Amino acid sequence: MAMKVNLVRRAEIGVERRRRTRAGMLRAGFHLIGQEHGRFQRIEDICAEASVSRGTFYNYFSGLEDFYGALSFELSSDFEVAVEKQMQRLTTVSARTGAAIRYHLHAARQNPHWGWAMLHTSIDKEIFGPEAAKRVKTTIQEGIDSGEFHVANAEAGKSLLLGASLGATLDILYRRARKDYPEDVAFSILTGLGVTKSRAGAIVRSALPELEPIMDADESSPVNFWSEEV
């Protein structure tokens, strides 16, 4: 029985060691990528920052694309859950859309390291990544079906929303925008989608509840929006 207990404990230690190693590489990647010029990093750069070998890197990730995908998930998962929790209280597609835009743009202002890392890890075949594009396209279609949005199709609406949000995020990160810029952008996107000016104005002027952290970043996740350390 004692031998079985020791083997179980040894396995637990191994799992924890692997978790810590993987988390350390992701934190190192966040440190490098969460900067203005952090887009183009090499595997060697990440390994040096995390003090691991190239072989260790490949024990956890198949390459840079896989690493960026994992980091993007860690950066966005808890934040997206927190946003979704607040948006469940809103009854219209246009109100949820306006809130989502404002939350993301204010987040880039609040934590620029997170904002830069989100940009650098997400821009590929789709702005902000395929999962975000899929969610936005679904939302636009819901707005069209409900009669709230008046655009040619969901694809066009998706491009309008994500393209404007990308430009606005860059304006914020480069400090070209005033404090209420997220509201200006949300208003412009909503009216571009066909929402009336009076309705769009009411949406962007409504109170935006503070997001509640989902996890303790230090214990549960290698990188997290609510941790500004980089």
Score class of each variant (00 low, 15 high):
residue 2 A to G: 04
residue 4 K to R: 04
residue 11 A to I: 15
residue 18 R to C: 13
residue 23 A to G: 05
residue 27 R to K: 11
residue 29 G to L: 04
residue 30 F to A: 14
residue 33 I to G: 06
residue 38 G to T: 01
residue 38 G to K: 00
residue 40 F to A: 14
residue 41 Q to F: 02
residue 42 R to V: 08
residue 43 I to P: 06
residue 46 I to N: 09
residue 47 C to R: 04
residue 48 A to Y: 01
residue 50 A to E: 06
residue 55 G to D: 11
residue 55 G to V: 02
residue 58 Y to Q: 04
residue 61 F to H: 08
residue 61 F to A: 13
residue 64 L to W: 03
residue 64 L to G: 10
residue 65 E to R: 07
residue 69 G to P: 00
residue 69 G to N: 01
residue 70 A to E: 12
residue 71 L to H: 02
residue 74 E to Y: 00
residue 76 S to V: 00
residue 89 R to K: 15
residue 90 L to V: 08
residue 91 T to S: 09
residue 93 V to E: 08
residue 95 A to K: 09
residue 96 R to H: 10
residue 103 Y to P: 06
residue 107 A to N: 13
residue 110 Q to G: 14
residue 112 P to G: 02
residue 115 G to Q: 03
residue 115 G to C: 06
residue 116 W to I: 02
residue 118 M to S: 05
residue 118 M to N: 05
residue 122 S to T: 05
residue 126 E to W: 13
residue 128 F to Y: 08
residue 136 V to W: 08
residue 138 T to N: 09
residue 140 I to D: 11
residue 147 G to M: 01
residue 153 N to W: 04
residue 154 A to R: 05
residue 156 A to W: 11
residue 159 S to P: 01
residue 165 S to D: 08
residue 176 R to A: 07
residue 177 A to M: 01
residue 184 D to C: 05
residue 191 T to E: 15
residue 195 V to N: 13
residue 201 G to L: 04
residue 202 A to W: 03
residue 203 I to N: 06
residue 212 E to I: 06
residue 213 P to R: 01
residue 216 D to L: 09
residue 221 S to T: 07
residue 223 V to C: 07
residue 230 V to F: 09
